[in-house]
Design a protein around this nucleic acid. Sequence first.
DNA 1: AAAATATCGATATTTATTTATCGATATTTA
DNA 2: TAAATATCGATAAATAAATATCGATATTTT
Lengths: 222, 222
Amino acid sequence: MEENLKNFKKNEISPAIMRRLPNYLRYLKEKQKEGVEIISSVNIADDMKLSPIQVKKDIASSSKVQGKPRIGFEVDGLIADIERVLGYGNVNDAVLVGAGQLGKTLLSYTGFENYGLNIVAAFDSDPAKCNIKIKNKTVYPVERLSEIIKKYNIRMGIITVPERFAQNICDIMVEAGIKAIWNFAPTHLIVPDKVALKNEDLAASLAILSSQLKVILNKQEN
Amino acid sequence: MEENLKNFKKNEISPAIMRRLPNYLRYLKEKQKEGVEIISSVNIADDMKLSPIQVKKDIASSSKVQGKPRIGFEVDGLIADIERVLGYGNVNDAVLVGAGQLGKTLLSYTGFENYGLNIVAAFDSDPAKCNIKIKNKTVYPVERLSEIIKKYNIRMGIITVPERFAQNICDIMVEAGIKAIWNFAPTHLIVPDKVALKNEDLAASLAILSSQLKVILNKQEN
DNA sequence: AAAATATCGATATTTATTTATCGATATTTA
DNA sequence: TAAATATCGATAAATAAATATCGATATTTT
């Protein structure tokens, strides 16, 4: 009675693969738009600067599409499977706290819907920023944060406040029932074990890129 | 004649450790601000939700600070060493293309100076956005991009244009001599091998967080 | 239609990363 | 001041991830 699911065991996808899946998805959708219907691991690997073996393994563990030797994989099938693994189509309502420059940028960003993010309300401590609408979303005074999280049973919170306020906002969110926090404040937050935390650290990305640049420039000197 | 540098061999720090270093740095600076002068691996591990063994190993390979049994490591020394590894103090001049919402946010972001990013000029294709200053930085028409990169010998480029323009901007940058590209457009860019590319994919982060949230919520149902 | 070739899936190997162990040592406690 | 204890550095073991190998198969070439 065993299903024909190859390595597709128990939805257990490693973190390393999970990090690459969004890249595959973006790449495959571009190819789809170009009219490509079948693509091989070698092709993907060349374009994405990965090894073909890695691409094959990643596909095997995140999709049940069968590749054909000498031909490749069906693009539509890969896209559908990767989207499912990434939770495309799920909807997560979220609140955002901190309607400053960065907060407004996230509120305006249109790329999130596909990943199921639905920011239902924003909050700010500055009365001057409250009770206005940004991209159709109302900014409430931060005093109402807990109330609204509870009322709408919201599970995800986005923090875009200055770092000195971040822990306090985080605590309020956790107390009100938030289970996943996306933190853009450059600070270390303390959360209980059963709350997921993802720090978005632009400075860290920059540091990594800078060190790569240094390597490149050094090589060219030789 | 061997130097007392422990595992501190050849400046070769693994990518996995490199990714964690900015987190350590942020954490240690907070402790420093609180007046903490010595800290143990167990302490760091508890707060950062890592294992003490991993913390010890990370410190050993990125710092030459000697820990004392039963005591810990000198905070100031750790900070200094990690900053050096991350290239804190290096200065990288950069150009930014795309003075929209996200571009303006990055131009205004103050957290980058410490990591040596110095955005010297911004560019946009919309004449209405040009020749104004944002946070003291002039926005030039994109036609002048190549010229200014070459004139000031700039090596890093930041792309915050809509995805359909990203590859074109990327090509102009590469042709003009850019060696490291920080891409915020949600698209797959093709660059030569000797150019470093870092894609900043907010949707990908979100996808990972969403899948963690799903796991948490499922556990609570049981 | 047969031979050559490219890519597949599966498995094996290598490399990287994390976690565990253990003697040494600095502090704390008795 | 001696014994107990916590944390260190170093090394070893275990786990995870990336890469290599190989027979099978679908297409292309001859």
